[in-house]
């Protein structure tokens, strides 16, 4: 799957992405927040938007061991990341996790 427009951010040392169409607002500052639907994803750093991302569907093993809504996995600048599905639990990104 190739998609266009993904917002990238870093949280807890890992890289994350959401399809840009799902993002309503990005609040920058000391404690950045991404608003998508009714969810608020906390970020440590907003990295910006990439136009294209080669997203691999999540395999059964990954889905079993990371059982949350995601569109798949990808690599940006030699770093693997999870492409979240709209509706992924924002609690994972709250303070205190992981």
């Amino acid at each position: 799957m190739r998609g266009r427009g993904f917002l990238l951010w870093r949280r807890f040392g890992a890289l994350w992405a959401l399809p840009a169409f799902a993002v309503q607002a990005v609040v920058k500052g000391a404690n950045p927040v991404i608003r998508a639907g009714e969810a608020e994803f906390f970020a440590d750093e907003i990295l910006g938007v990439v136009e294209e991302l080669a997203v691999q569907k999540p395999g059964k093993v990954f889905e079993r061991f990371w059982p949350h809504p995601c569109l798949g996995l990808a690599v940006v600048a030699s770093e693997a990341l999870v492409v979240l599905a709209p509706g992924a639990p924002a609690e994972l990104f709250a303070k205190g996790e992981p």
């Binding site: 990954f62 061991f65 059982p67 949350h68 990341l81 999870v82």
Partner: peptide, 13 residues
């Protein structure tokens, strides 16, 4: 890189 919300056997990505 560890992922929050992972089952313990998943070290990460």
């Amino acid at each position: 890189t560890p992922l929050p919300g992972a089952r313990p056997a998943l070290l990460g990505l």
